[in-house]
Design a protein around this nucleic acid. Structure first.
Lengths: 208, 208
DNA sequence: CACTGTGAAGTACTTCACAGCT
DNA sequence: AGCTGTGAAGTACTTCACAGTG
């Protein structure tokens, strides 16, 4: 079940997609074939089988995959069989935006803290979440058992704040700031570049 | 300058990254080498050269790339030499969030309209942007010259709303809804999956 | 002579195609 | 008979390495 072979990053991304199909199919009973999943997702059926086979032999030849089993397996592989506490760092427009977004929580993510350096914001509450002084990050992270830092600070401050996140022993960062952050290898970093996504669209439109 | 060779999607993503370095380097005079860009971005210098060479011969051997020129070139390639009007469709938590986020606008994107089906929201204003009835999408799109639809509606409604976007002749969709949308080939579609990004982090944390 | 532009080699991911199980 | 699991083939992207040049 746990393997030696290196699993492509893209495979992990597709696991999220497969999982989501089950909410749409809604049936928790019954089976689904790789071809069925392929139709729902637009992903090639051989790709579906290969993705799932990385993690074990979940399917039954001639039948397909048990929806219930597969759902449980993927949930567990993605670590969604428990809750994860996240903190929003930087409560500007985007940070506020992300605080309000419950879509994070609908799956197993809880935003349980917010932090900023602006004295006008500190100790306010937003959506029921108190805004702490960023200087207290280490204490807040320990107390609230924060495992994910969601970064939405100004670009100039980003690296310095990332350093503080690392010092506070938070193991993972979801970075919305369009800056290349340098962090130690043991810290997980993932970038989301919203302007970049739009630029990919305008690039394609411009080409026409 | 315009080419036959197919340009990797990933190259376009990196153009956004290169462009961003110039805001950080700040100097509009002078040159930068592929090695310099590599250091700023963490991208291999051969990759940098290959990416830029897709679009023409911008560099000078022995010298590097003129920052001013390169900035102008990439800006133009990405279509950022003009403004683009976007509409937010679905003013729930995430939609409101995105409306408030000025980071879109800081580059050349303007959110000039918002739409929803909820009578309690319609004709309110949020951040100076009026919320229109989704039923009026085609009219609003025409009047406001909307070229990008930013989709943040409930999953159940997403495909139907996407159909309306297509019917309204909006050529591009940035989809925040975790659903596979089916649209005609001439409509550009890009998916952003925020829960998926977090799941990629928890997957990696779980593995330890 | 430092640095680009680019073939060639290397690596990673995807799809095919089919043997093998149920 | 139908569908998985997986080597082998195919395709796409990255990195190397160096000839070419300002």
């Amino acid at each position: 079940m746990t393997r030696k072979v290196k699993i492509p990053v893209s495979t992990v991304g597709r696991l999220s997609i497969y999982l989501r199909v089950f909410s749409q199919v809604a049936k928790t009973q019954g089976t689904i074939s790789s071809k069925g999943l392929a139709e729902w997702t637009g992903i090639n059926s051989a790709q579906v089988r290969k993705d799932l086979a990385y993690f074990g032999q979940f399917g039954r030849r001639g039948v397909g995959y048990s929806i219930q089993d597969l759902k449980a397996q993927i949930t567990s592989i993605l670590g969604l069989d428990r809750e994860w506490n996240a903190a929003i760092i930087g409560v500007g427009h985007l940070g506020t935006a992300l605080l309000m977004y419950r879509g994070f929580g609908s799956r197993r993510f809880k935003v349980t803290a917010a932090l900023d350096t602006d004295p006008d914001k500190i100790s306010w509450e937003l959506e029921g979440i108190r805004i702490h002084d960023l200087a207290d990050l280490a204490a807040v992270a320990r107390e609230k058992r924060i495992e994910i830092a969601i970064l939405s600070v100004p670009a100039e401050a980003a690296q310095e704040v990332a350093n503080q996140v690392v010092a506070a022993q938070i193991p993972a960062i979801l970075n919305f700031v369009p800056v290349r952050l340098v962090v130690p290898k043991h810290v997980l970093l993932r970038d989301v570049d919203l302007a970049g996504e739009l630029e990919a669209l305008t690039y394609a439109m411009r080409k026409r």
